[in-house]
Design a protein around this nucleic acid. Structure first.
Lengths: 117, 117
DNA sequence: TTGACCTTTCGAGAATTCTTGAAATATCGT
DNA sequence: ACGATATTTCAAGAATTCTCGAAAGGTCAA
């Protein structure tokens, strides 16, 4: 995951409503949720909801799919994996720093991520 | 780590300069770096640099310490750990979702975090 | 094809964030 | 105490993000 994409994902999640929407969609799993249902739970105006959904989508955190009249949104787990990978990798660059996951866990996660990419 | 703090940390990192500054400080380890040296490397105006350093500091991602005339900034790893923990915990809330680190790694990280808090 | 439903688009205004230069603060060496 | 160095504060303006209401775009059922 490149730095501009990381910044986009961070910015997308750095908002009360968007973080809540994303968490809600993660809970829903691959089934996702139609826009209207999201708006109801969040108490958001339709146009405001679309604004935030688009922000999440541009960042690659969620994706949409039309189902007749409704538009179903669901979480894109890959982007979150990439984000967490970037943050953990860049968290412990200094050797011996008292931080983050233990080296073994970090190595395992890096290997898994490289395979996925 | 509570949601407002998570949003603050995400917002602080969601900016080109601030993410670069944070990464630079992480590389430096506990020794940190004086404000001037950060500004030189980033090519930032002093007042702009202070603005961004304060944003990172308010989010708990970095801390400062005076050393005679200079002010040394260094990364606060705990907040990043908390942020990564929050993101990983909330990434795989749906059971069986094809996402994030394997359950065992997640459990280990959660246990470590709880101990630290 | 008409009307109802669900969602997005558009435009305007409010709020927030970012940048910049000038002035202020704090520390040091002389 | 004075001048130099390092950084922050302040105020103003530019840029961006967010919210809201009205209108438009698809999709379905009759």
């Amino acid at each position: 995951m490149k730095t501009p994409a990381v910044i986009a994902a961070l910015a997308a999640l750095a908002h009360e409503y968007r973080l809540a929407i994303y968490r809600l969609l993660v809970e829903q799993g691959t089934g996702g949720l139609p826009a209207g249902a999201i708006g109801d739970r969040m108490g958001l105006q339709p146009s405001s909801l679309t604004f935030h959904l688009q922000a999440l989508q541009r960042a690659g955190l969620i994706s949409q799919q039309r189902a007749s009249r409704q538009i179903i949104y669901s979480a894109d787990y890959d982007t979150m994996n990439g984000l967490v990978g970037y943050l953990t990798d860049n968290c412990c660059a200094a050797e011996g720093a008292a931080c983050c996951p233990a080296p073994s866990a970090r190595a395992a996660r890096t290997a898994r991520r490289k395979k996925a990419a």
